[in-house]
Design a binder for these strands. Structure first.
Length: 201
DNA sequence: TGTCCGATTGGT
DNA sequence: CCAATCGGACAG
């Protein structure tokens, strides 16, 4: 029944991985308990060709070091001095790519999430990159954590193309031409997105 | 060493 | 609309 994704699943380009992660379930099995949610919103970042990526034009080392390693590890960084964002490293060794997880539909550990977030509504527990990190206790201590391990892992899942939309990424207006790349993927009808998807006519 | 600013969020 | 809050990136 429940199958955990193995290393090979993550060893592909970030664009492909971002799409394939929709419908999969991210699990955090930490000291305080277990939380999990279905991935409903992702964004691809490709360091070799993408001005919006932290690893763009960079050599291995520093904040993005883990991105240069093999796929299937956690890239977590501090944003605005306050929040943290969780990414899945994509691609093979030497390819600095990753997928930002932007929203989840909670499936397990909701009371734990409520306690960590100080919010009651399930729809708002994980509806943004910083929110889901807080809800799942993804602190920077998990930087470089193996996603094929026991504390952090992903369960296989899928969604049909008709349920998916691709849009420009959020908050990357500074990235010139890359700002318009349709590298954000969402499950359109999900009620757990960071931004509502406009009604189709 | 110093300054600038962000892959955000929550409260005015 | 705006403050919070800090480390990475880059200029000097």
């Amino acid at each position: 029944m429940e199958k955990r994704l193995d290393r090979s699943f993550f060893e592909i380009d970030a664009l492909t991985l971002a799409r394939k992660l929709l419908g999969c379930t991210l699990v955090h099995n930490g000291p305080d308990g277990k939380t999990a949610g279905v991935i409903v919103e992702t964004e691809a970042y490709r360091g070799q060709v993408d001005k919006a990526a932290h690893s763009y034009g960079k050599k291995p080392g520093g904040r993005t070091a883990v991105q240069f390693g093999p796929g299937g590890y956690a890239y977590i960084y501090l944003i605005y001095g306050i929040h943290e964002c969780f990414n899945v490293v994509a691609g093979a060794e030497g390819e600095p790519e990753c997928v930002l997880i932007r929203a989840l539909a909670p499936t397990e550990g909701v009371p734990l999430m409520v306690g960590r977030r100080h919010r009651e509504k399930v729809e708002e527990l994980c509806s943004g990159p910083g929110k889901l990190c807080k809800a799942m206790a993804s602190r920077r201590e998990l930087y470089g954590c193996d996603l094929c391990g026991e504390e952090l892992y992903v369960i296989e899942g899928a969604v049909a193309d008709e349920e998916v939309a691709a849009t420009p990424r959020i908050g990357v207006g500074y990235a010139e031409e890359a700002a318009l790349y349709p590298w954000r993927f969402i499950i359109k009808e999900s009620h757990f997105l960071s931004l509502p998807y406009p009604k189709e006519k």
